[in-house]
Simulated assay, not measured.
Amino acid sequence: MKADDEIARLDNFALALSKDANLRGYIVGYGEQRLPPGDFLRRIYGYLDYLVNRRGVDPNLIKVVEGGNKEKMSAELWLAPKGAPPPHPISKMEVRPTSPLKFDEITFGIGCESEMSVYLENVNDGLRFFARALRGNPQSQGLIIIYPKWREHLSRAANIARHTKNLLIRNYNIEANRLVAKVGKRRRDCAKSELWVVPTSSTMKLNPLTSRWQ
């Protein structure tokens, strides 16, 4: 769905909530197998952020319900009377990897932001969901890979990787010995951050030349 269509539907949803104080709103989101879980979470919580911070909806009147995967990512906007049970998704989101899982990837840099997106696109936005996944998988490590732009100094990418690791330690209480920060190969377009959940039982290793697990 195009961003302007999403915004129009969210605006109508906000209007409906504002007209009846006895209504509660729910955003029921479903991910997609090919999409990293963090990407999905930043999308549906971006809807919540838009409704609360741009449309002025009381955050106590609206909640996100995290569903599992469907053939394509989708979101349902539900209205329910106050006191009614929330809608039940047909499946629930679970992050329980048995092999290295790319939890999220975010491009960043000047000119790399979407013009009309309501998704959460800042690297810091993704860290809270990544930290939650690490806490939910205590027998795993978190791998941070920063891919710099083509002519960008590798030292800058290394600083970003270290800073990201420190944010997870300081702001989300993730143990330092569970986090690894690396710099990947240069990219021709925007810089990119990848966040991986790697089970400690996995024997796969990341090839730094190809950025593939083997």
Results as ranks from 00 to 15, higher is better:
E121M: 07
K82T: 14
P85Y: 13
F103C: 05
M93K: 10
P86R: 09
S117L: 08
S114A: 06
L101S: 00
I90V: 15
N122L: 11
G111Q: 05
E94A: 09
A84P: 05
E115Q: 06
E94D: 09
S117G: 11
F103Y: 13
P97T: 00
K92A: 02
V118W: 00
G83N: 12
E121S: 11
Y119A: 15
P87R: 03
H88S: 15
S91D: 13
Y119F: 15
M93N: 06
E94W: 03
D104T: 07
T107I: 07
V118H: 10
G111I: 04
S117C: 08
P87V: 08
V123N: 03
P97Q: 01
E115A: 14
V123E: 04
P81V: 00
Y119W: 11
M116G: 11
L79F: 02
E113K: 03
L79M: 10
A84F: 11
S117W: 02
W78P: 10
T98Y: 01
P89H: 13
P81A: 06
E115V: 03
P81H: 14
P81E: 02
W78H: 05
I106D: 09
A80P: 05
S99R: 13
S114T: 03
S117F: 00
P100T: 01
G109P: 05
P89D: 14
N122P: 01
L79A: 06
V95P: 02
E105N: 00
P87F: 12
P86T: 13
P85L: 15
S99A: 09
L101I: 04
L79S: 04
P100Y: 12
G83L: 02
N122K: 11
T107S: 15
A84S: 15
P100I: 01
K102D: 02
